[in-house]
């Protein structure tokens, strides 16, 4: 990246205490994000992706590591300084209804953010801005008087986006913004997010479990497993040439809509589930499920290393010609289906 990145995440970790035990939510994660770009973070539930989003915004305090946003180490800011910086970094939530105050109208919700950040000189100026924002995100300005529960899921998400935009942020963390929405609405929202990025040059940290969505919107993708980065690469590179067996497994698990019946691939189920982050395995966190695991993987944690230009993976075997066709656990072929 030629320019100084707008966001530098450097060796950030977060551990939670759960009933006397340590839950390793995020473990030494590092990445840079250039202004106006989108970094996708992919992982299953329990991978620490949402925690990472909170750490980046310092909604949670990191145990170690630094988050440098616009050249400032966020951890070093006093709380009032941090609050004033918040206008530059915003968040959109998975469940827009839960993120809105049920007692506030849409207008009040958006204006409250502006009041807190002292944007707009008067209430009427803020109201005017709010109506403009609502129109920009595809709602009618009359929605200012609606309560969140009167809106559909997609409309609620638009309100969440409008509230984030009202502060003119440089960075927006999108935490699974589509997963509570219907497919037809997902497309509307993702197109809106892309338009806004083109117009306003916003930088996105886009957290999702949906590989397709992440590929669509991201420039760079980070794959998390048990709180650790297992692979990182440009979006197209990652999805065309995944190097880590976990990334490969994820991609194989996604059920694609086949173009025609004959092209329907066999259902392949991978054995095992993600281990509990309370008791992560030794060595490589993925080794208990990995079809390629060798003795070394159980003992020595593979470091994230560059396998090709801009493509990093944390696997002892990464870079070797890893095949996608490793032995699947269970297989049901289309012919078996037809025979039924």
């Amino acid at each position: 990246m030629p320019d100084e990145p707008i966001l530098k995440v450097d060796g950030v970790s977060k551990h939670f205490k759960v009933g006397g035990r340590t839950l390793r939510a995020v473990e030494r994660v590092s990445f840079d994000l250039g202004a106006g770009e989108t970094l996708g973070i992919v992982g299953e539930s329990g991978s620490g992706k949402s925690t990472l989003g909170r750490l980046v915004l310092r909604l949670l305090e990191a145990d170690e590591g630094r988050v440098v946003f616009q050249g400032e180490d966020l951890a070093k800011l006093a709380s009032n300084e941090l609050r004033s910086r918040r206008r530059d970094m915003q968040i959109i939530f998975q469940d827009p209804l839960a993120s809105l105050n049920p007692r506030m109208t849409v207008g009040a919700a958006i204006e409250d953010a502006m009041v807190v950040q002292k944007i707009g000189r008067s209430a009427s100026e803020r109201r005017h801005r709010t109506e403009g924002l609502l129109e920009r995100v595809g709602l009618q300005p009359s929605a200012v008087d609606a309560y969140p529960f009167e809106l559909s899921g997609g409309q609620q998400q638009r309100v969440g986006i409008a509230r984030a935009l009202s502060l003119g942020p440089k960075l927006v963390v999108c935490d699974e913004p589509l997963s509570a929405l219907d497919v037809s609405v997902q497309v509307q929202i993702i197109q809106l997010l892309q338009e806004l990025q083109r117009e306003l040059g916003i930088t996105y940290l886009f957290i999702s479990h949906n590989l397709g969505v992440v590929q669509l919107i991201s420039d760079t993708v980070v794959v998390l497993y048990l709180g650790e980065v297992v692979e990182q690469a440009g979006a197209d590179e990652l999805f065309e040439r995944p190097q880590h067996p976990y990334t490969q497994a994820l991609m194989r698990s996604v059920l694609k809509v086949p173009e025609e019946l004959e092209k329907r691939a066999p259902l392949v189920a991978l054995a095992g589930e993600m281990p509990s982050p309370l008791s992560p395995p030794s060595g490589c966190p993925y080794h208990p499920r990995c079809p390629l695991a060798m003795d070394r993987c159980k003992e020595e944690k593979p470091l994230l290393r560059t396998v090709s230009e801009g493509h990093m993976a944390a696997c002892h075997k990464a870079g070797e010609a890893v095949t996608m066709g490793s032995a699947p656990a269970v297989l049901v072929t289309p012919s078996e289906l037809a025979a039924s």
Binding site: L59, R83, R86, R87, F93, L100, N101, A113, V116
Partner: peptide, 12 residues
């Protein structure tokens, strides 16, 4: 998430 959102826009 409601409180988190408010914290995220800098509410005291």
């Amino acid at each position: 998430e409601m409180v988190e959102a408010a914290r995220a826009f800098g509410a005291s």
